[in-house]
Amino acid sequence: MKAPIVWVSGTLTAATALVASLVIVTASRGAITTFESSAGPLSVQTVAEDLVHPWGLAFLPDGRMLVTERPGRLRLVTQQGQVSKPLQGVPEVWASGQGGLLDVAADKDIATNRTLYLCYAERDGRGGRTAVARARLTEGDAPRLDDVQVIFRQQGPLSSGNHYGCRIAQDGGGDLFVTLGEHYAHRDQAQNLSNHLGKIVRIAPDGSAPKDNPFAGRDGAKPEVWSLGHRNPQGLAFNPADGSLWEVEHGPRGGDEVNPIRRGENYGWPVIGYGVDYSGAKIHEATTKPGMQQPAKYWVPSISPSGMAFYTGKLFPNWKGSLFVGALSGQMLVRLSLQGDKITGEERLLQALSERIRDVRQGPDGALWLLTDSAAGRILRVTPASE
């Protein structure tokens, strides 16, 4: 097989050294299945498999992928399905409950600065919190992370293992937006500006709080906070059409939400919402309240939305501008039609696949790339069947 083309320090080379460092995970090459959709038949190809609860996926300039596994491993994966050994240098994570190594994001200038960001659960005494680290990707015989620095640590009551949030999105200026859960047992803290629970934060690449953040300089408020009143947001993405920021978050029994995220706004959890507690008990005061934002869409019953991506590619011209959301308990890929900040339609895809969809990305090839959440997780490539 021809050596893959690999990006190193902003250039492309035939990297036989990387091939030597790869463990070839033999994906089910024949596992290409077809599913119906409004865009015609879809082909779903297994690119790689036997990943342990893969959580986050980010593309490099040459088309390779960085993929996290929740137990604490980061791997490089080619589009041909070659999976590297775990990269050295990954921070220690607390892989307990829903925690572990979660999202990964490539810096917008990674072609020149080789910088990436990791979001993960970090142990602190008897509990955990969300942390963000910055690192430099070093290529060679054994790709690794160097210059690893923790740039942000969530402040507030600790988690016993649940609701870390932990998606990263970078804006055009380089600032990072990070979703932070409310740790399940501390849901009322989502309304408390003196900590980071149940918030989306905006930080600079070095972890500092930009001075124009909405609560910077306010007594008793954390300067990193961008928005509040979130439960467990596990999807975050910018809409390329207008630059707006969107998130999806888990409700309890019912009340999963899709929200356009605006500076300084309060999204209501747990004061308002559309779900009930797992026991069936009432949680919310009401479904609406002045000063608190309504979701663009909510689901009852829950589908457990996770990763998300706006589609801009050419493979599915009729789907340009759509928002794709992975569903965990719902075991499907959801396509949402948008008109501005309004959601105008929903299409449920790949339900017969019977897989928990953890992350969704548009690849440089215009395909949709998915991670399935299981102890034998897969990387899937979705294209028109006629491709």
Rank of each mutant, 00 (worst) to 15 (best):
K211N: 10
D212C: 11
P214C: 08
F215L: 10
D219E: 13
G220S: 08
G220C: 06
A221L: 10
W226R: 08
W226S: 03
L228M: 12
L228F: 14
G229Q: 09
H230N: 08
N232P: 07
P233K: 04
P233R: 06
G235D: 08
G235W: 01
L236V: 09
L236P: 01
F238Q: 02
N239E: 10
P240R: 10
S244N: 10
S244D: 09
S244Q: 01
S244K: 04
L245H: 05
L245P: 07
H250K: 04
H250R: 01
G251Y: 00
P252W: 07
P252K: 06
P252G: 03
D256W: 03
V258G: 00
V258D: 00
V258R: 03
V258S: 09
V258M: 09
N259Q: 07
I261N: 02
E265G: 11
E265K: 15
N266Y: 13
N266M: 10
Y267L: 12
G268V: 08
I272Q: 03
Y274K: 08
G275M: 02
G275A: 09
D277H: 14
D277P: 06
S279D: 15
S279V: 02
S279Y: 01
S279N: 15
G280I: 11
A281H: 14
K282L: 15
I283P: 05
I283V: 14
A286L: 10
A286N: 13
K289Q: 14
G291C: 15
M292K: 14
Q294S: 12
P295M: 09
P295K: 01
A296K: 03
A296M: 05
K297T: 04
K297M: 07
V300F: 12
S302K: 02
S302R: 05
S302A: 13
G307S: 00
Y311L: 09
G313S: 04
K314N: 13
K314C: 07
K314H: 10
K314S: 13
F316I: 04
N318R: 14
W319H: 06
W319P: 00
K320D: 04
K320T: 09
G321W: 05
L323A: 07
V325Q: 00
G326A: 12
S329Y: 03
G330P: 07
M332H: 10
L333H: 00
L333A: 03
L333F: 03
R335P: 08
L336D: 02
S337R: 14
S337V: 02
S337I: 05
L338F: 07
Q339L: 13
